[in-house]
């Protein structure tokens, strides 16, 4: 049951009521391999565990490039597909600009902090 020892953990999932709160453990979400693994971990929450309410806390994240955005959109679609909801919170100002420029702030629900994020469901 334990995860492979060689695989570094990239996200931490905490349950608050029926909401899966995901914290990113890496400050930079950049390279393809780690984005792939983060994507797999996030998709598993929906595809295997059937989680319908997911809150992504970006509090630890200092840098993120366009490569990561595709995964977030796919996750959003997956959650929508099972009538759930995805909320993002605690996004640093510079990273928020990444969402604004790509207009993803219009599609994704973004809350200022975790408390507001939990209330967005």
């Amino acid at each position: 049951m334990s995860s492979q020892p060689s695989r570094k953990r990239r996200v931490e999932v905490e349950d608050i009521g029926d909401i899966a709160v995901v914290n990113f453990l890496e400050k930079k979400i950049l390279d393809e391999q780690s984005i792939q693994m983060i994507g797999d971990d996030l998709f598993r929450l929906v595809d295997e565990l059937g989680r319908r309410k997911i809150l992504l806390n970006f509090g630890n994240v200092e840098f993120l490039s366009s490569a990561a955005l595709g995964k977030l959109i796919t996750l959003h679609r997956k959650v929508q597909g099972i009538q759930g909801k995805l909320v993002l919170c605690k996004i640093a100002k510079d990273i928020y600009d990444v969402f604004k420029i790509t207009k993803l702030d219009k599609i994704l629900t973004i809350a200022p902090d975790e408390q507001a994020g939990l209330q967005a469901f």
Partner: peptide, 22 residues
């Protein structure tokens, strides 16, 4: 245009948009 609804899940174009935005 990566901001068009039909292109949202396509990976291309967003990098270019960010370069121009930043």
């Amino acid at each position: 245009d990566p901001t068009a609804i039909e292109n949202l899940e396509r990976p291309c174009g967003r990098g270019l948009l960010l370069m121009r935005g930043f």
